[in-house]
């Protein structure tokens, strides 16, 4: 298993390098000149040249790239062109704000998707299965932005009024004064709900299809023939075998989640990676944009790496079928 993980990590490195080259070349070629941004308020006529030299922008692009990567690896991520704050600090703060949102959205989505999928797969074609199917299609069709506004109106205003509650129950904007798990839950519930809807809808359909197929497999028939209870058959034998499809989708959605985070953070006025991306793009802050894209790229690669490991854990044949035995 260790060798397998090591092999996947080594395979990820060139992917990351390639991604970093692409990010760097595209941003530097089409983005704003960092020296120009920094010198715009300077009275010093020689500022542009001096800053270009300071930032190494007068050197070939390849050398600049290597410098940038050295900085990324050693933790020196530079400073924002706009706010002059440390980029590492900015991205660290943004990650810390986004991590609970994404983490809880993944957990909630996984749990709900599996429960819905099992429920549908046990009785395909039943009323419940059709109902979940219709809900899933509706969930996939719901624009995140619109659903966010709808959820805010319902849960922060209409529902408390109907229940006769004076004051907010769930928050549509972060509570800067809130402390503790209850405050965190009230602040995160709605963004997590909004971010999860499309994930639950998509994942539950994938898992249901895979589970229906798995429940017709020989080993499941054998388990049933041995007299195991249906619940055990489904949850232990069926679910495990069908989970590889789910793992693939979850890993692929890790990248797509970035788009959802951008919209969700905007609707709920939350700071985080999405908000930071929007501001750095609109402000032409390439000093933030390049590390941001690298971190996002690394997150996607990491998600895929975790998926690879999960495959191996779920299905030992994956480990065996490495390059040595191919």
């Amino acid at each position: 298993m260790g060798r397998y993980v090591l092999r996947r990590v080594l395979v990820s490195i060139p992917v990351l390098v390639l991604a970093s080259v692409l990010v760097f070349v595209v941003v530097r070629s089409f983005g704003v000149d960092p020296a120009r941004v920094r010198c715009e308020t300077s009275r010093d006529a020689g500022c542009l040249e001096r800053v270009r030299a300071q930032l190494g922008l007068d050197r070939p692009l390849a050398v600049q790239y290597l410098d940038e990567m050295r900085g990324v690896v050693t933790g020196d991520w530079g400073r924002s062109l706009r706010s002059d704050r440390s980029v590492a600090e900015l991205i660290g703060d943004a990650l810390a704000a986004t991590a609970p949102l994404v983490g809880w959205a993944m957990v909630v989505s996984l749990v709900l998707a599996v429960v819905i999928a099992v429920s549908g797969a046990r009785r395909p074609g039943s009323t419940r299965d059709h109902a979940f199917g219709a809900l899933a299609i509706a969930g996939l069709a719901l624009p995140t932005f619109w659903f966010g506004l709808l959820a805010i109106q319902l849960f922060t205003y209409d529902l408390p009024r109907w229940l006769g509650i004076d004051g907010p129950v769930l928050y549509s904007v972060p509570d800067p004064t809130g402390r503790g798990p209850v405050a965190a839950a009230r602040e995160l519930a709605l963004p997590v709900l909004v971010l999860s809807v499309q994930l639950v809808a998509g994942w539950s359909r994938y898992q249901r299809a895979a589970l229906i197929e798995e429940l017709q497999a020989d080993h499941v028939r054998t388990a049933r023939a041995k007299g195991l209870r249906e619940r055990r058959v489904v949850w232990k034998h069926g679910l495990r075998g069908s989970s590889t499809a789910m793992v693939t989708v979850v890993a692929l959605d890790a990248g797509a989640l970035i788009g959802g985070v951008v919209i969700t953070e905007r609707v709920f006025s939350r700071p985080g990676m999405g908000t930071l991306l929007v501001s750095s793009v609109s402000d032409g802050d390439t000093a933030v944009l390049i590390p941001w894209l690298l971190v996002a790229g690394a997150a996607v690669v990491l998600a895929n790496l975790i998926a690879d490991v999960a495959y191996a854990l779920l299905d030992p044949r994956v480990r065996i079928a490495g390059p040595r035995s191919a």
Partner: peptide
């Protein structure tokens, strides 16, 4: 919405 719901 923050106003209506009493968050601010």
């Amino acid at each position: 919405q923050a106003l209506k719901s009493g968050q601010v």
